[in-house]
Simulated assay, not measured.
Amino acid sequence: MFDTRMPRLQDWDEVLRLSQKYRIFYQNEILVNTFFQKDSISTHPEKAVLAMQKIFEKHKDAILSDPAIVESFFKKKASFVCKTGKNPKEEMKMILKYNPSAGTFIKSFLSALGLYKYIFNLKQKF
């Protein structure tokens, strides 16, 4: 029952919808092998950013229900934004709002200056 309007992350959306009706348990074991091709939707960070926006619109109440969920969600979205070559200013603002720590403030400040994407991309190389 995947939402065919989702440009990517259909599985995340499905799990969020299922979790509204059923209890979900986490299993810390790899159950699936993945294979990426050049034309795979998983290779397009722009589609991931759009999908994250749609997921937030659809599941806003659940995401905003817990500061840890907010931080995790927007960190993931920020990583996709960085992979598009843009700075995740809005994402960092949301993280700072729900987790006003010194580290989050610095990341938000770097993002506002347009520098966060460079640090993120350097970190990905090492």
Rank of each mutant, 00 (worst) to 15 (best):
V81N: 02
F36R: 07
P88K: 03
K47R: 14
S40Y: 06
K38R: 06
I95G: 13
H44A: 00
Q37C: 01
V81G: 05
Y26K: 07
I119M: 13
M94I: 04
K21N: 11
A112S: 12
Q53S: 10
S65A: 04
L115M: 15
F74H: 00
G114H: 12
N121F: 05
S79R: 03
Q20F: 01
K93P: 02
D11C: 06
S19L: 03
D13I: 02
D66F: 03
D66I: 01
S40G: 08
M6G: 04
V32N: 09
V81S: 07
N87Q: 01
N87Y: 06
K58H: 03
L9S: 06
P88T: 05
P100H: 13
K117H: 15
M1S: 11
G103F: 12
D11P: 00
M1K: 10
Y98M: 10
A62L: 01
A51W: 04
K47F: 09
C82L: 09
I41R: 05
S42F: 05
F80C: 10
Q20M: 01
N87A: 08
P45Q: 06
Q37I: 00
I41G: 03
Y26Q: 07
H44F: 04
P100A: 14
Q27K: 05
L50C: 02
F126W: 15
T43H: 07
F73G: 07
K21Q: 04
L18H: 15
N121R: 14
M52K: 01
S65D: 06
F80A: 11
I95V: 11
L16W: 03
K83R: 13
K86T: 03
M92Q: 14
E91F: 00
F74Q: 03
F120T: 01
S108Y: 06
E71S: 11
R5Y: 02
E46T: 01
S108N: 12
F56H: 07
